[in-house]
């Protein structure tokens, strides 16, 4: 009973967060850009030699991923920071809810928002594929699920920074972690190659363990067991998606737990 009451309180915050996101003009513009990029893939497809479907899939997924990352950073940092900057939180924290319920409710709202956006962008992508005579298929669903997981993790990281830092710094920290996390393969090669057995190499290897591995979620073009993975030929299995989900849940959960701790210690002066 207490768990249900707690969820209802978080849901009240989540619904408000969703409402704030969908009424934000910046978000609508970003989604329009994502759809425009997908539409542009139709034009590029016409210029290619019978590779329309491949180009729509590649550009479409890139659009969902890139604009998804921008939106996740924007929402993850902005929506919590705005509560603190505009002091709207002052009227909410004294209400009968715990601070962690407020923060997790905020995250739940972001999850609902980003899920709706990824579903919307994926539906548009599927529509473009059908119009061009292709099919969306389960492989594309797996790729989109991985992108969704990446965005959920990125929002948890952004929220951690937003719980103690200013919006700009939070956005920069979270974006920097995403860039590093997307390039873990290159950093690993660097640490085990040129910098092997040096203090710099050991430091990079230690950082790779601690920092979030965003590369795990955007695998198209990567090598798995000597096989190049892509949505056009052989793609990762459901079990891979499951393990990526477990990683995102564990890492994201730790970020949210840290954010809750910091949020509990905070004075709203």
């Amino acid at each position: 009973m207490a768990v249900i009451a707690s969820f209802q309180r978080m849901w009240a915050i989540a619904l408000n967060t969703f409402r704030e996101a969908v009424r934000n003009k910046v978000l609508a513009i970003l989604v329009m850009f994502a759809v425009a990029l997908m539409a542009f893939s139709l034009v590029l497809g016409q210029l290619s030699l019978h590779e329309e479907i491949r180009i729509i899939k590649d550009l479409g997924l890139a659009g969902v991923s890139i604009f998804g990352v921008v939106i996740a950073l924007f929402l993850g940092v902005n929506l919590l920071s705005k509560e603190l900057d505009r002091k709207t939180v002052y009227a909410i924290v004294p209400k009968p809810l715990h601070r962690h319920e407020f923060l997790l409710g905020k995250y739940l709202g972001l999850v609902v928002t980003i899920t709706a956006l990824v579903v919307l962008m994926s539906a548009v992508l599927a529509l473009f594929l059908v119009v061009q005579g292709g099919r969306h298929g389960v492989v594309m669903v797996r790729a989109e699920l991985l992108i969704w997981l990446e965005l959920l993790l990125l929002m948890a990281v952004a929220m951690l920074f937003a719980s103690f830092s200013s919006p700009w710094l939070s956005a920069m920290f979270a974006a920097a972690l995403w860039v590093i996390g997307r390039n873990t393969a290159e950093l690993e090669a660097f640490a085990t190659g040129k910098l092997e057995a040096s203090p710099g190499g050991s430091l990079i290897e230690a950082l790779l363990v601690v920092l979030p591995d965003f590369r795990m979620f955007y695998v198209s073009g990567a090598n798995f067991d000597e096989t190049v993975v892509s949505v056009h030929e052989s793609f990762v299995s459901w079990s891979y998606v499951g393990s990526a989900a477990l990683y995102a849940a564990t890492y994201g959960g730790m970020c949210l737990a840290a954010a809750v701790l910091l949020f509990y210690r905070r004075d709203f002066t």
């Binding site: 409402r19 704030e20 809810l97």
Partner: peptide, 23 residues
């Protein structure tokens, strides 16, 4: 609170509904 600020994208009714949900 002193000089209260609320979610300016909401109407007063929507805001009170949100508070009511928390209760």
């Amino acid at each position: 609170p002193e000089n209260p600020y609320f979610y300016d994208y909401l109407s007063a009714t929507e805001y009170l509904h949100m508070v009511g949900r928390i209760y």
